[in-house]
Design a protein around this nucleic acid. Structure first.
Length: 156
DNA sequence: GTTTCAGATGTTC
DNA sequence: GAACATCTGAAAC
């Protein structure tokens, strides 16, 4: 079943079959306010509120390499980035191969492929670079907020 | 010192 | 077998 989620950053379309999330698309059109009531929508609600929930069940990776890549991506903390080269070294592969596998990822955002940037530029993004910039901006500002919160707690 | 360019490289379709 | 969401080192300026 296909759903549409209206996020603060834009519309998100995803396929939820009742068991797992099969795919997710970041759309150009602005998000409609209607939210689905399923684990993916709940996860997105939390994420855009700056909270990290356990991921909803996801479709199995297509290849063994994608499984390892997914684990590596999920290991990158909220608000941080890795370069293609850095990540390629940890996976024992070539940077260009990594880009190819990232492009094939059907679950952007859920599997944070936007946290991988080029050594010199921002790199690429299958759903459009505008989305990648928005997501990175959002995480950076959210992290700044949470760091400020922690610091203010520490002071008081 | 910096910029430019070609070659290496592994996964995907 | 070709394409690719890159990196690196060497050469030129």
């Amino acid at each position: 079943m296909e759903y549409h989620y209206g996020s603060p950053l834009g519309g998100i379309g995803y396929v939820w079959d009742g068991q797992a999330c099969l795919s997710l698309d970041l759309l150009d059109e602005p998000g409609r306010p209607a939210h689905g009531r399923d684990p993916v929508a709940a996860w997105l609600d939390a994420w855009f509120a700056g909270e990290i929930l356990p991921l909803p069940p996801l479709v199995a990776p297509a290849t063994d390499f994608q499984a390892r890549l997914r684990r590596a991506l999920l290991g990158i903390p909220f608000g941080e980035t890795r370069s293609y080269g850095e990540l390629a070294r940890t996976l024992g592969t070539a940077p260009r191969a990594l880009g190819q596998a990232l492009k094939a990822n059907p679950l952007p955002l859920l599997v944070p492929c936007h946290r991988v940037v080029g050594a010199h530029g921002i790199g690429g993004f299958s759903c459009g670079l505008a989305w990648k910039r928005r997501l990175l901006d959002f995480e950076a500002s959210r992290r700044a907020v949470s760091v400020a919160e922690i610091q203010s707690r520490g002071v008081s």
